[in-house]
Amino acid sequence: MNITINGEKEHLTGQTIVISDLLQIKNVESPEMVSVQLNGKIVNQERFQSTSVTENDELEFLYFMGGGENK
């Protein structure tokens, strides 16, 4: 299947994949460090294991970023 992650086209084998598996394949260290937007909708973290990605889906992995002050 062909999907788009952070604006880049990606080809994956298989017809479908759940978000938690996709995060693993894409080497996201922890599912808790990203917010995932699937076709414009934010997916709750509790649903990462039950939400499937299919052909032509558009995903954004939005990373938490702190910064600024040195605490």
């Binding site: 808790e32 709750n44 939005l62 938490f64 910064g67």
Partner: peptide
């Protein structure tokens, strides 16, 4: 919060003082 929902658990996301900038 629409996008990021809740603070990540401590130490999941490195800070600049841990990871540099």
């Amino acid at each position: 919060r629409c996008t990021f929902r809740n603070p990540p658990p401590p130490d999941v996301v490195p800070t600049c003082s841990q990871a540099g900038v």
